[in-house]
Simulated assay, not measured.
Amino acid sequence: MKSNTGNIWLTALVALAFGFLGAALWSYAGLADNRTRAYLLDNPSILQDVAQALQEEQARERLAGVEDEIYDPFPGAVIGNPQGSRVLVEFTDYNCPYCEASLADVQELVADDPDLKVVMREWPIFEGSEEAARMALAAGKQGKYRAFHEAMFRRSPTTPENVAAAAREAGLDIERARRDAASDSVSLELARNLAFAQELGFSGTPAWVAGDTPIGGAVGVERLREALR
């Protein structure tokens, strides 16, 4: 019912906006009241607002197709409270400078909300990122995802030497981690995350799902906090 109501309002807004636009075009031909054209000239953001609302509604509809799975983390790939009832999903890449910049936002959100569970989706889209993504998931299996995650960002870029150093800093069992990083379960997780990102229409990292809202880009802590609310 909530989705139907949102669609009805969105349809009404789109109809209103394009009604104004259509009337404005007719007014140029002398067939409509000049007040419509004046209104659009005085309020140029109305079509932008409607377009944004339409994009957000479409993103929520796409999310409905994967939400049963996207909130279910790979074993251990969680920051914050693993049992938290408030959930933020992040798609991340260790060679992405905006992901690195967003790390402080996630740390702040987790520190402020003991009920927050951040589900981490490794999405290595930059060249040379896959080895680090695989090691991060291997760290998750040892209960040390966050330790590796933060160590890896401190040691970027993701050269083999830096990945190994981050793994040691996180206290991983290195031999076990290497086996896990090469496992089928990790390969499947990376493929699933790519499929999720494509389904949601994400074009890069970081990308987020907060509440029922997919969000692309490094949007800052306040935007994420607002969406979680």
Rank of each mutant, 00 (worst) to 15 (best):
E189D: 13
R176H: 01
P160I: 00
V163D: 07
A167Q: 05
R155P: 10
T159K: 04
L188Y: 10
E175C: 05
E161N: 05
S156H: 11
R176M: 07
A166V: 11
D180K: 12
T158F: 07
R168K: 15
A182S: 14
N162G: 08
E189M: 03
R168P: 00
S156N: 10
V163T: 07
G171K: 06
R178N: 12
P160N: 02
A177K: 11
R176E: 13
S183D: 12
F153L: 08
V186M: 11
E150Y: 12
L172P: 00
F148Y: 12
S183L: 12
A181Y: 02
D184V: 13
A164W: 09
T158A: 09
S183C: 12
A181T: 01
R176L: 12
A182R: 14
P160H: 03
T159I: 03
E161A: 13
F153T: 06
E161Q: 08
A164C: 12
R168G: 01
V186H: 09
A181K: 06
V186W: 07
V163E: 03
D173K: 10
H149M: 07
R154M: 09
R179H: 11
N162Q: 14
R168Y: 01
A166L: 10
F148H: 02
S185A: 14
R178S: 01
P157R: 11
L172W: 06
D184N: 14
M152I: 07
A170Q: 11
L188P: 00
A166K: 05
R178Y: 04
S156I: 08
N162K: 04
H149T: 03
D180G: 09
N162W: 01
V163N: 02
S187E: 14
S187G: 14
A170N: 08
R168A: 14
S185Q: 15
A166N: 09
L190R: 08
A166C: 12
A167D: 04
A166W: 11
L190N: 05
R178D: 00
N162C: 07
A182H: 01
E150H: 08
D180I: 14
A170Y: 04
E169S: 14
R192F: 00
L172M: 04
H149P: 07
L188G: 04
